[in-house]
Simulated scan of single mutants.
Amino acid sequence: MVRITPLHKLFAAEVTGLDLASGPDDATFETIRRAFATRSVLVFRDQDIDDEQQIRFSRRFGELETTKVGTSGAGSQLVILSNLAPDGSIVPPTSRQMLNNRANRFWHADSSFKPVPAKASMLSARIIPSEGGDTQYCCMRAAYAELPQRLKDAVEGRVAVHDYGWSRSKVDPDLVTEEEKRAVPPVRQAMVLDHGPELGRSLYLGAHAARVEGMDEAAGRALIDELMAFCTQERFVYSHEWRPHDLVLWNNRAVLHRATPFRGSDEARHMVRTTIAGDGPTVETPHIAA
Rank of each mutant, 00 (worst) to 15 (best):
V248F: 12
R235H: 08
P185T: 04
G200H: 13
T94E: 15
V69G: 05
C139T: 00
E198G: 00
A154M: 02
P197T: 07
E284D: 15
V41E: 02
D26C: 05
D134V: 10
E226M: 10
D110E: 09
V41T: 10
I55V: 13
P244K: 08
V41W: 04
T285K: 06
R263M: 15
T31G: 04
M140A: 04
S130L: 02
G23E: 11
E14C: 13
S167G: 14
I127E: 00
V212D: 00
I276E: 01
E178P: 09
H245N: 14
T275L: 14
S22N: 02
G70A: 06
V187T: 03
I288R: 00
A210W: 02
V116E: 08
E213S: 08
E180T: 10
I127D: 01
P244L: 15
G200E: 11
M1I: 14
T135E: 04
R141Q: 10
I80N: 03
S169I: 02
A289F: 07
D46P: 09
C231F: 02
A103W: 06
V192L: 04
K68C: 04
E217A: 15
E234I: 09
V255R: 11
W242Q: 07
P286A: 02
E241F: 14
P286N: 10
F36Q: 04
G264F: 06
W166P: 15
P6V: 10
A229P: 01
P117R: 15
L199T: 01
D26W: 07
I55R: 15
Y144E: 00
E198A: 05
H195D: 07
D110K: 12
M191H: 01
S95N: 06
D48E: 10
R96T: 05
R60T: 11
V184G: 02
D46H: 10
G75R: 09
E217C: 11
R188P: 00
Y144D: 01
